[in-house]
């Protein structure tokens, strides 16, 4: 190996001849670029405020219109018939919770397994690229098509609308969200942490189980909660799969009530009692989603 010689060019000369004026470091608030910056900052403020208006107005109306009917009776009683007063939607709450539960039981284990494959086992394989692409397409999938699909696959073959079919339809919609969020969360686990685990003598399974999944769990849980919230409020996939029922759930293979369908049905009726109940059910739905979100945040908080 040769040793390069260091050549120093003397390009620095006659520096003292031209004294430079002192720089002005004061603020100039009326300069064009300062004004531009202020204007654009203001614009982003306005944008941020406008973006939050719909959310707050929806919550406001829900609390005003639905809050007054919220009582133990509305939370537990069965839906009223046409001219009946009072009543509630206890069966719809149970139905929604059961069906979202079924959907979660199906989509979360499946989604996390798929994400492990995508993020760790073979991220660059043809299969992984295809699955990732399809999952992205599926996130924008019209939810009513999931309902029609499960109608054809399950309702027609089982010859009945059911909570099971409703749960599967919701699972179809939750799956891509879970897969993509879990993949993202696991891919973010630093390589040096995985190297450390391999260096300790972990098998690949142990690396995934003991390091990647625990480290990525807050991100995975966030994705799961997003999917749950989306599924709980979705009515279209349940129209053809779970239908509705005026009674409490007794088996998973019978038509089942849900909050989303109850809101859909009651809000279009010409009776004040039903319309009030639709508002109250909307509020309950939002509260359920909110509670789950808060719970997930507490459980999934980054501990270390």
């Amino acid at each position: 190996m040769s040793v390069p010689e260091l050549v120093v060019e003397s390009s620095i000369r006659n520096l003292e001849q031209t004294p430079r004026p002192l720089p002005n470091l004061n603020r100039a608030p009326l300069e064009i670029r300062a004004l531009k910056s202020g204007f654009l900052t203001g614009l982003t403020w306005i944008g941020a405020i406008i973006a939050s208006v719909p959310l707050f107005s929806v919550i406001y109306i829900l609390v005003i219109a639905g809050g007054s009917r919220l009582s133990w009776e509305t939370l537990t009683a069965l839906p009223p018939s046409a001219f009946e007063m009072g009543g509630g939607f206890g069966n719809a709450i149970v139905g929604t919770v059961v069906m979202v539960g079924i959907a979660t039981l199906i989509s979360v284990p499946l989604g996390i397994l798929a994400a492990v494959y995508l993020a760790i086992l073979d991220p660059d394989s043809k299969l992984a690229h295809t699955v990732r692409f399809l999952a992205k397409v599926l996130t924008g999938f019209p939810s009513i098509l999931a309902g029609v699909f499960i109608y054809a696959v399950m309702v027609v073959t089982m010859k009945t609308y059911s909570a099971l079919a409703g749960g599967v339809a919701l699972a179809v919609l939750m799956l891509p969200t879970v897969v993509l969020a879990a993949e993202q969360a696991m891919a973010m686990v630093p390589k040096k942490m995985k190297d450390a685990a391999y260096g300790m003598g972990c098998t690949r399974t142990q690396v995934i189980w003991k390091v990647v999944l625990p480290t990525g769990s807050p991100g995975i849980l966030t994705g799961v909660m997003l999917a749950v919230a989306g599924a709980a409020g979705n009515s279209a996939p349940l129209l053809f799969t779970a239908l509705f029922s005026n009674y409490y759930l007794t088996s998973l293979t019978e038509p089942t009530a849900s909050l989303a369908i109850l809101i859909f049905n009651f809000s279009g009726m010409p009776y004040d009692n039903q319309i009030e109940l639709a508002w109250a059910a909307s509020l309950v739905l939002v509260l359920i989603v909110l509670v789950f979100n808060i719970l997930a945040r507490i459980i999934g908080r980054q501990k270390y």
């Binding site: 630093p190 040096k192 942490m193 190297d195 450390a196 260096g199 390091v211 625990p214 270390y304």
Partner: peptide
């Protein structure tokens, strides 16, 4: 055993 260039404790 191995000690790496970047300190790499687990998130625990």
């Amino acid at each position: 055993g191995m000690v790496f260039q970047q300190p790499n404790p687990f998130a625990m």
